[in-house]
């Protein structure tokens, strides 16, 4: 069996823990190292799994790994992706891919020039409900798509996510990209116009927006709207949601991605909770990345997909400034 040697750069984004577990579950993957400028963040996972640690990611890139997973702060994605590409490593990068269109184009170009693949981490494409909905739409079960309403509501993440010099934006950036990627994927069309509103409404002390509503119009004429707010209070039974209602000419469908959950009422927790029991989307996304690299096929979600989604959020901030739709 061919083996893929994988390294991870930065655990700043908590998704790194889940991606690591997904890689570890695959017998064809060897985790060859973890780099993090804050070593204390990764010491436990390093010792638990016997993984070599690096304080400087450039040292990790000098090893013979085949690929890296990058979960650094948004503002560092470009530096890390381009360095990995120049070291000849394939890349899976946490979303949002970058903080400007120009930056993301440079990342994509660096990977192309160096003959490595770039995948954007959009695990929602691997939700079983999403996969089945896509098949239903492609089979024409609801006719042509007319409109989409989505939500990616969440809890306020704190940490570097709310520091604009590290995150590059608030809820509108953080939570536009997942469902926007799904909208792009389902419509097969490109967003041409964006209207958005963003504000700090739930946590007054924040330096970034925590509420967002973003409308898009696609070249195909389809329109969509998405709530990106970190609006789930501490008392809410779960962290947030990913929903998408697609209205078609011959029917409609509704995806409630985490509806596969039990209701748990525990005095110890002090509130009711929705406990998810559905399939692990990260596992299937990571497997998709690994399978593509081992078989020499294109990765299932590209850097361009990451750009097409992030550029909508970036245009959204321009719309917030002028109070009117802006063109892409």
């Amino acid at each position: 069996m061919k083996t893929l040697k994988v390294g991870l750069i930065s655990f700043a984004h908590g998704h790194a823990y889940s991606y690591l577990n997904s890689f570890l579950a695959l017998p064809e993957v060897e985790i060859a190292g973890i780099a993090d400028e804050v070593l204390s963040r990764v010491e436990t996972v390093g010792s638990t799994h016997g993984i070599p640690l690096y304080e400087d990611y450039r040292e990790l890139l000098k090893t013979d790994i085949d690929a890296v997973a990058i979960c650094s702060e948004n503002v560092k994605h470009a530096e890390h992706v381009i360095a990995a590409a120049e070291a000849g490593k394939h890349v899976i990068c946490e979303k949002p891919l970058g903080l400007s269109v120009e930056e993301m184009e440079r990342m994509i170009e660096a990977c192309k020039v160096n003959g490595v693949q770039l995948m954007t981490a959009f695990p929602c494409r691997y939700l079983a409900a999403v996969v089945n909905a896509k098949q239903a739409v492609d089979a024409g079960e609801i006719g042509d798509i007319v409109a989409i309403k989505g939500t990616n509501r969440g809890s306020m993440p704190g940490q570097w996510f709310v520091e604009p010099h590290l995150s590059g934006g608030g809820a509108l950036l953080d939570h536009t990209v997942h469902v926007m990627d799904l909208m792009n994927w389902f419509t097969g069309s490109k967003v041409t116009e964006v209207y958005a509103y963003a504000a700090t409404l739930f946590h007054e002390e924040l330096k970034v927006d925590d509420a967002g509503m973003i409308h898009v119009r696609f070249a195909s004429g389809v329109f969509g709207v998405l709530d990106t707010s970190w609006s789930r209070p501490k008392s809410f039974p779960t962290w947030g949601d990913v929903t998408m209602e697609i209205v078609g000419t011959k029917g409609q469908l509704f995806i409630d991605s985490f509806a596969q959950s039990n209701e748990v009422f525990s005095d110890a927790a002090g509130k009711g909770a929705w406990s998810f029991w559905g399939d692990n989307m990260d596992h299937y996304m990571v497997k998709g990345f690994v399978d593509a690299l081992l078989s020499g096929k294109p990765v299932p979600i590209t850097g361009t997909d990451g750009l097409r989604s992030a550029e909508v959020a970036l245009a959204g901030y321009k719309s917030v400034q002028c109070g009117q739709p802006v063109s892409i």
């Binding site: 007319v146 309403k149 209207y195 509103y197 409308h215 119009r217 329109f223 709207v225 000419t249």
Partner: peptide, 15 residues
């Protein structure tokens, strides 16, 4: 607001 209207479907979303 965005709206799609036909005899089968009149759908509107407004922020």
């Amino acid at each position: 607001s965005q709206r799609a209207a036909s005899r089968e479907l009149d759908y509107a979303t407004a922020t």
